[in-house]
């Protein structure tokens, strides 16, 4: 595995930067530009590089979708949120007339994780294959159901013409897919979700979203520490603050940045990526959470530092 690219990072439902939000950013950027040299494109680029990402960029609003770059021709993808649509457009652009195969690993079947499939253009192209893997028995029926009337205008078989296949993954039993060993583990989420551990060429990637962690259960913690063990990157559901996750939003099926840091530290993971961002958070709120999480890691650091990132649509992380 060479790395990952995030196509959708938002939890629960897609969001978009609003006119008011963009206007706020522009005003702040123009204030920051006062008195700065802006004569050349290089000056402008230098100014933008100095600005916080929450001003000069945006974390984005597509729902869950992550591409794993194996270095091979096949595509490996986690979840089919709305981020699957731009992934499909990018895949089409690099197709060059050759058939493509997509291996898609589903954490679970809630709408924000499946809504991209009906808009995934590569699945409309004869010769392509989309193989969808998951540990839910309802995997195929859930994806067919979202394209039944009156929810969608074109049904599953008409649009995909047999190009979409399904493979059940037994939790805890490693499978080999496109040269990558894949293991799933049951997570706590309404209707169940599954985390994925991908291992290839000495690299370990963990995808663990929509996963609540009951803090009173040491066996649960041990199970996750084992699943995260020595990971090069853990993509982690950090939707809420710890206080919210165990009080007003207890049993909502999500986790916090604090638990992400603790589990990664216990597991000896090297990098944590905050993921499945709360849709009500604006860019400044996500950036503040990232800064706080880095600070938490710093003041609680053990023998090994843990690098902390916050996922955004378009972020690439090398493994």
């Amino acid at each position: 595995m060479k790395g990952v690219r995030f196509w959708g990072t938002r939890g629960s439902l897609p969001v978009a930067l609003t006119a008011a939000g963009l206007g706020h950013k522009l005003r702040e950027v123009l204030r920051a530009a006062r008195g700065q040299p802006l004569d050349s494109d290089a000056d402008i680029e230098a100014l933008l590089q100095r600005l916080p990402f929450a001003l000069a960029g945006t974390y984005g609003g597509h729902s869950s979708c992550v591409q794993i770059d194996t270095g091979g021709a096949d595509f490996l993808v986690c979840d089919m949120g709305s981020g699957l649509r731009p992934l499909g457009q990018a895949a089409m652009a690099q197709r060059g007339g050759k058939p493509q195969t997509f291996h898609v690993f589903m954490s679970h079947l809630h709408w924000d994780h499946i809504m991209g499939l009906p808009f995934f253009v590569p699945a409309f192209i004869p010769g392509n294959r989309v193989v969808i893997y998951g540990s839910h028995r309802e995997l195929e029926s859930a994806l067919r159901r979202q394209q039944q009337p009156p929810s969608f205008p074109v049904d599953f078989d008409t649009i995909f013409e047999g190009r979409v296949e399904f493979v059940h993954l037994e939790p805890g039993v490693p499978s080999s897919v496109a040269g990558v060993e894949v293991t799933t583990m049951l997570q706590r989420h309404t209707g169940d979700s599954y985390g994925y551990r991908f291992e290839s060429q000495g690299k370990v990637l963990v995808y663990s979203t929509d996963s609540e962690h009951p803090l009173a259960d040491p066996a649960h913690t041990e199970r996750f520490v084992g699943f995260f063990r020595d990971a090069d990157l853990v993509i982690f559901d950090a939707m809420y603050s710890l206080a919210d996750a165990i009080s007003v939003k207890a049993d909502w099926g999500h986790s916090s940045n604090v638990v992400g840091v603790e589990l990664c530290q216990l597991a000896g993971a090297r990098r944590l990526c905050l993921y499945h961002h709360e849709p009500v958070f604006d860019d400044a709120a996500i950036e503040a959470m990232l800064a706080e999480t880095r600070r938490l890691e710093e003041i609680t650091r053990g023998a090994q530092p843990l690098q902390v990132s916050a996922a955004y649509d378009g972020l690439e992380i090398a493994l």
């Binding site: 603050s241 710890l242 206080a243 919210d244 009080s247 916090s256 940045n257 604090v258 706080e292 999480t293 600070r295 938490l296 003041i299 609680t300």
Partner: peptide, 15 residues
């Protein structure tokens, strides 16, 4: 100071 920061980051200073 460390525990105060943990309270703040976890939002337990609001609880």
């Amino acid at each position: 100071s460390v525990v105060a920061e943990i309270f703040s980051i976890s939002r337990f200073d609001k609880v």
